[in-house]
């Protein structure tokens, strides 16, 4: 992310992903309150549905970007030494990347099963 883009673009990403997360969370809440999956097989079948699967994929990407901007902002505010900040940002980026890949693996395996 360029120096120039890291202000407006990060802010816009945070806003757009927040809207998607709010809508998706609401849908999930309604789904689990009204039509909760009966068992694990039911769960897997539901997630294997292409629309639900893509919805979850976008949800995970949105969540990771949203978390990245939020954590980046907090580190920029509170961590002044550049070396410490760079290390922490790298750790956060790697953790988020690992979480994203893990979630993608779960979704892909659910569809293959």
């Amino acid at each position: 992310m360029s120096r120039r883009a890291s202000g407006l673009r990060a802010w816009a990403i945070q806003r757009v992903t927040a809207i998607y997360l709010a809508i998706f969370f609401t849908i999930l809440l309604v789904k689990f309150m009204i039509w909760p999956p009966a068992d694990q097989l039911d769960w897997r079948l539901w997630v294997a549905d292409p629309v639900v699967g893509i919805g979850f994929m976008v949800f995970i990407v949105a969540l990771l970007f949203h978390a990245w901007v939020g954590v980046r902002d907090a580190l920029m505010d509170y961590v002044k030494p550049i070396a410490v900040r760079a290390t922490l940002l790298s750790l956060v980026a790697l953790t988020l990347l690992a979480c994203g890949l893990w979630a993608a693996q779960i979704l892909i395996l659910a569809r293959l099963a």
């Binding site: 120096r3 120039r4 202000g7 407006l8 990060a10 802010w11 920029m76 505010d77």
Partner: peptide
């Protein structure tokens, strides 16, 4: 002049 992560976008 306001672009970048600090001048404007530190407002939370």
């Amino acid at each position: 002049a306001l672009e970048g992560p600090y001048k404007l976008f530190r407002c939370h």
